[in-house]
């Protein structure tokens, strides 16, 4: 089962993991949680704003999950990505992968976040107490072999 959600509201990651654990399908569950970081602390990050291209973002997340499903034989996969204005430490993205064996669950999870970083149409804008900046793409993400 593939579950894709793009939402402005917060999510409860422990409840989401519990759902995977409770379904009694496979034993290996890997979770990646990405949160808002304050890398401009001298200016004080007040909000992180996330803009996205709705139709394309849904399509890319769905295709990414489907690729991972096929390649690593997943039994379940959840991707949640948020948009809107978020505070420091709020969660942005959650990826949970479930397989029979742990290595496949880890590899599938890593593939999804790496692929999403360079293909899914989301953009971050940092609002500090001085000004606002669009976050530039991290060129290192482009070098990752996926």
């Amino acid at each position: 089962m593939i579950d894709i959600r793009i939402q402005s509201s917060d999510f409860n990651f422990s409840k989401e993991i519990k759902n995977f654990q409770n379904n009694k399908i496979n034993g290996a569950v890997v979770c990646f949680l990405g949160s808002v970081r304050d890398l401009k602390s001298e200016e004080g990050l007040e909000k992180l704003e996330i803009e996205y291209y709705p139709k394309m973002a849904e399509k890319v997340l769905e295709e990414t999950a489907r690729k991972a499903f096929k390649e690593w034989n997943l039994s379940q996969c959840l991707i949640i990505h948020r948009f809107g204005k978020l505070d420091v430490n709020e969660p942005i993205v959650l990826i949970i992968t479930q397989t029979k064996h742990r290595k496949d669950a880890f590899r599938a999870n890593e593939f999804i976040i790496d692929f999403l970083k360079i293909n899914a149409p989301f953009w971050k804008k940092e609002h500090t107490n001085k000004k606002s900046y669009w976050v530039e793409q991290n060129k290192k993400d482009l070098d990752i072999k996926i």
Partner: peptide
């Protein structure tokens, strides 16, 4: 057609 900067999600 959509025109946008390199993506920065995740």
């Amino acid at each position: 057609i959509a025109i946008f900067p390199p993506v920065t999600g995740g």
